[in-house]
Nucleic acid binder design. Structure first.
Lengths: 244, 244
DNA sequence: CGGGAAGTTGAAGAGCGTCAAAAGTAGTGG
DNA sequence: CCACTACTTTTGACGCTCTTCAACTTCCCG
């Protein structure tokens, strides 16, 4: 079960109390990047911090869409189910990513924490009011939505037309690129999700994912460094396999 | 080759000259729905009408993204290619749908007319200026983008987890629902696209699409009424097959 | 009519899924 | 620290859905 907290004030190294958003490491990536320091106060006033353990549900498909979120640490998995249990993971969200941008009354997908994660939660009504008062936030959100749309189309190309090998290669490069965008190392890649998550994201089974990882490892294209860490000795070779 | 025209004024039945957007049949579905009559003038001043024959390219993946579009008649196909020619159709657009919403410098996909189609074309710079002056247009666009995202996720579920049979059934119901939303009949469905388009949209081959159509026809689930028309004798049965 | 594209059908094969079992990993408590 | 359990991952054998390749048919437009 997620834990909901009011946002604590953060401390600078010298002990000075500062606005929590000002200390937020991923603010530049999030919606908040367009707000001035004094405007952040309005955001904080409607915001709750949410701590999640691995596997915690943030919301389920069909739940009333009362809240919007911003991932601040960890990783979140977005998924949809067919009635018989087949699952499609439609995306992984990382710090800075926005969650819940479906202007319907209900969520059309489920969201769960992959590893330990934290999120900023905004009541939808309050955020919508804030948005209409700050068109630049709306513009920022439109930009983020456009990017998500482009990502979704890349994923459709992957799901519809790529082989298992190409899918895995593309997946690893995606993780690498997203880590880099958040200021982390691009190369030894952190892979926090399980085989089941990866399989459901790539439209494969866990067995095929496992076999394909083995195949890439034996081909010298990946070097596992631990349970959740993979090194790419030759990123260009992986790029060649990924295709697009 | 598409033909570019300045937007002609439209005539009411009594011969009165009226603003072309006022006569536009699909205005309620498009971005334009949020604008007052006098605000439409600003839109018309930056707009060019584009007529396309079947197969005409509207733009290609990689082209500089200088224009945005609104489909006003016909149908448009959005697609991406892999270097070796494998193609994924990521969506079909119908009257009222917005095209080009990728705030990058280049288009990340190609757009082509499926049948004879017309579009409203806006220079990107001009439209962006207009958007920043009319936050309600921006809000409308954000809403449309959210809907597209939800559609994209449905399509990922289809591509990653559905069988050929389920894919075809879902596809037909999608066409039916979209026709209805535009005020057309939901049941004898107009299917203007080729087997190749359908195959590349559903992540299948043309042969599998053809075989599956035959199978559905022999099962009494669809009744072809002509080259581009299909009747569903029992829509509920099709819904059962579609799954979600 | 006639020619080219679009669609259908058949036979064979590949890639990935399914089922099953073994091996590895993590957490828990004595 | 080790044993016990539960879960995740890997590996193997086999089967099925969909693809590939090929031939044939139908449709359409000059």
């Amino acid at each position: 079960m997620p834990r909901y907290n009011i946002l604590p004030t953060a401390k600078r190294r010298n002990g000075e109390q500062v606005h929590p958003c000002v200390a937020c490491e991923i603010r530049e990536l999030a919606v908040c990047s367009v707000l001035e320091s004094h405007e952040l106060d309005e955001l904080v006033s409607i915001l709750t911090s949410v701590d999640c353990d691995p596997g915690d549900a943030i919301f389920y498909e069909g739940d009333p869409a009362d809240h919007l979120f911003n991932v601040t640490s960890g990783a979140v998995r977005i998924s949809k189910l067919l009635p018989d249990g087949r699952r499609q993971v439609t995306g992984f969200l990382f710090p800075g990513d926005f969650l819940g941008l479906a202007f319907n009354e209900s969520y059309t997908y489920s969201a769960e924490a992959v590893g330990s994660s934290t999120l900023c939660r905004f009541p939808r009504r309050d955020l919508e009011r804030l948005l209409s008062e700050h068109p630049k936030m709306e513009r920022r959100l439109l930009g983020m939505a456009s990017n998500e749309l482009a990502t979704a189309q890349d994923q459709m190309l992957l799901l519809g037309r790529k082989t298992a090998r190409e899918k895995l290669a593309t997946f690893l490069l995606m993780l690498s690129a997203r880590a880099e965008r958040r200021g982390h190392d691009a190369n030894p890649i952190d892979v926090p999700m399980t085989r089941a998550d990866i399989a459901d994201y790539l439209g494969l089974t866990i067995e095929t994912v496992s076999r394909t990882f083995t195949e890439l490892r034996k081909g010298g294209l990946i070097e596992p460094q631990g349970a959740t860490n993979i090194r790419l000795p030759d990123p260009e070779a992986v790029r060649d396999i990924a295709g697009d």
